[in-house]
Each structure stands twice: as C-alpha cells, then as structure tokens.
Design a protein around this nucleic acid. Sequence first.
DNA 1: GCAAAAGTGTTTATGCTACACCCATGT
DNA 2: ACATGGGTGTAGCATAAACACTTTTGC
Lengths: 232, 232
Amino acid sequence: MNKYAKQSPILVAVDCIIFGFDGYDLKLLLIKRGFEPEKNKWSLMGGFVQPNEKPEEAASRVLNQLTGLKNVYMEQLSVFGEPNRDPIERTISITYFALIDIKKYEKQLNDEYRAEWFPLDRIPRLIFDHGKMVEQAKQKLRYKAALHPILFELLPEKFTIPQIMTLYEQVYDVEFDKRNFTRKLRSTGLLIKQSDKDKENSKKGAFYYKLDKATYKEKFTKFLNFISNPAY
Amino acid sequence: MNKYAKQSPILVAVDCIIFGFDGYDLKLLLIKRGFEPEKNKWSLMGGFVQPNEKPEEAASRVLNQLTGLKNVYMEQLSVFGEPNRDPIERTISITYFALIDIKKYEKQLNDEYRAEWFPLDRIPRLIFDHGKMVEQAKQKLRYKAALHPILFELLPEKFTIPQIMTLYEQVYDVEFDKRNFTRKLRSTGLLIKQSDKDKENSKKGAFYYKLDKATYKEKFTKFLNFISNPAY
DNA sequence: GCAAAAGTGTTTATGCTACACCCATGT
DNA sequence: ACATGGGTGTAGCATAAACACTTTTGC
C-alpha cells in the first residue's frame, strides 16, 4: 500500500533528565553539546530516534552511551513539540527521566561527552527548552515519589535511613522529623535491616538496610502516601 | 545553517481519548476510520501534526473537528512509538485525553466521522494500538482523579451530588457510602449549593451545585486525597 | 399510602504531628 | 570527657470508615 500522502514527517529526538544521588546530594547529569548549534553549551543528553527503534530504546541507548549503565529506571515524561524549539530543523523531543546511583556511574567524567554532575540548586543555563524539561522532571519526581517508592532507585543496594532521609529532604526541599520519618518508612515493609553499619558518616554508625524486592514490586503501583502534603 | 544530516524524520500524529459523561454513564467517543488501512473499523479520533503546529494544537484541532468544542480540558498522555504500529508508514502517536460534558457535544452523530459514544465497559475492538491507549487513559484518569478534582470537567455547570457520586463510582468501579462521600466532597470547599433542585431523577429532587471556580483553580494542583485507596 | 431517591450524625479506629532524651563511638 | 550523629516512645489531634433512619413527593 502507498504511504500517507501529503504528510510532512518530523525529526524525533529523545532527551534524558538523569538524576543521581551519591549518598549526600541529589544531582543532575549534563553534557557539553558536541555539535552546532549551541556547541559547547550545557545540555541534556539526547539523540535522534532511529528507524526501527522505539523511542524508549533510543532513550536507553543514549543513556547507556553516556553512563555505561543498562537496566536503569526510566520513565517517559512528555513531548516538547514547539515548531521552532530547535532552530536548525523542526524536531520534537520526547523526554525521559532516569534515576541512578551515582556510584554505579562507570565512565570517567570529561570523556567524549564532557559530562558533569550538577547539584539541583546549581543547574547552569541550558540550551533550547532543556531548562523547562528539567523543571518538569523535578516536579514529576516530587509528584511520583510522594506516592511510590521510586527514590530507592537512586540508592545503592545497601543504604542507611539517614541517607534516605537526606534524599527525601532534597527532593522536597524541606526537613523531616527523623522519628516520624523512620516510623513511616519502616511501616511500609520495604526495608530489611542488616546487621552491619555504615561507619563512614558518624562515629556511632548507622545500620544498613536493603530493599525488600518482593514487597517493592508488590507495592510499587499502590498509592503509599510517603509524603503527606508535598509542595507541587 | 544546514539541517541535521543523516537523520530520518518520522510522521507524528496525535490521538485523542475522549471521555464524556451524560449524567448517568461515563463514555468514550470513537469514530469509524474513513480511510485505509483499517477503513470502517472503530478508532480513536486522530490526525497528523502539521508543519508549524504544536502537538497540543493538533490535538485541539482534531477534537474540535469532531465535536465542535473548544477550550476543552486536555492533557498529554504519552507517546506510542513502536516502529511497526502503523503498517503503512512509520508514525509515532502522541496521545491526549480529553474530558467533556456530553450534553455540550454539538455535532450530530453519524456525520462525516460517524462517531459514537460507547460506555466504558462496552468498548469495541479498536485499530492498531488504540486499545492500549484507552487502557492507559483509563488508568491515568483514575490516578489523577484520586488526587485532583478533574472529574468536574465532565459535569455541566449545574450538577447534583448523586450525579458526581455516580461518576466517581464509574471511574473507580466501586460503590461509595453516600454520607462519607458527601462529607468529603463538601469539605473541599469546591461546591456552591444552589437553591433549585433537579427533579428529573427523583421525586424528592436533588439540590444543584456549582463549582467554586476560584477554589477550583487554587486547589487544582494540590493533592486532595479524593479517593483514599484507589485501585490502580 | 407507598415506593424511590435524597439527605443527615455519631462512634470507632487509624494515621499524622509534635516533641526530647539517651546511646555509641572516635577523638 | 565531649562532640557528633543515630536511635527510640508517647500523647493529642485529625481524618477515614462503618453504620441506619427520616424526609419529600409523584404515583
């Protein structure tokens, strides 16, 4: 059969908003764009969707190129489609956000993409509409993390409660009461206490926990009310 | 400057999942596709994104073509991008869901698009991946309506509490206690009681209410906990 | 007068918030 | 011994859930 007549195809790209946590700070991974226009300006990692490639495959490929990581938590965010958002040629961009444990990031910084981790409150000016994409991703992260345990995707296999609490505090930009926070977290049944402690960050040491993966899967899509009245 | 070399553009379409409520039932608006392939099969209303048109403009245009309505509540859902989802030519589709009061629907049925309203539990087989799109939209509606007062977008200016309750019961496929439901709804401050009654649906008659638009705007983005433990 | 739907209150249980002190250890 | 961060309990309050009877009116 013939192709659809009279229709104009458009370039389709993906852009990844990559959040990472190193145990202390929540950060965003940005690259220095390697080609014109806006060469050498800070940018999200992105790429074009190839023929015979699903958009989510393109996003995984692009993320893997930059970080060396596979099987990363990724979620489709939304489409940016202003006709003139890219000055060279009309391109719509599908955004994805990814959550990774920075310690797993294997590539050297300053490699071919000249990538750097930026704390969320010190994001530089970004090209095109990438600033808006980041804002939307931050909002979605807050939204989703209030209801589902996605922030565990940012943590290593073994983590401590003070670490998780720091992470939540950075996502919501508030301070929590550690007694209430601990109680609520434990009540989810998601944590398995380990017998060893992290002694790097305090003298007394904080017990390590692991995620109960069965409970995690089971409860993931439920509304968990992690954060009662999140700013949104 | 030159265009991006070596990249393959793709057709970009929008498809609209149009929910409507007539005071009794929650329904979906479908059309009989007017061209090949899959001509005369049931389909979502859609269309191609034109040059110089934003995707959301395309969605509004397409919705207006079908219903005659403007300024309808619409929200971007997600992208469907499987390389072979359309057998004729690669096309990615951006889905939007729309909420409308069926009584406002102005066009005659069986016009050029041969559109019909289907109760949600009697959706026919749809072309391509449109069935998946509808499932995703139903899920998103449940998700969002549990936290934000979007279901009011389906109601006429004047509505009764039993009507809203029926609507919520259909969205979540459960029965609510009318005392608890009424109390919770009123506690939001979203309703303004009118002095007249709807006498069509009962002998006693149910008081009409209007939406308090200022409160609606103010509370829209807050988490309202309309439904405590929604199935999702 | 009766059938059909609207409207209204109370009690109980659960979850959330606020709040302060002791513990373990490295220096 | 002291400074640092980790860990724990309780009481008051607010919200949610369960539950049944009265009201209105068209027929």
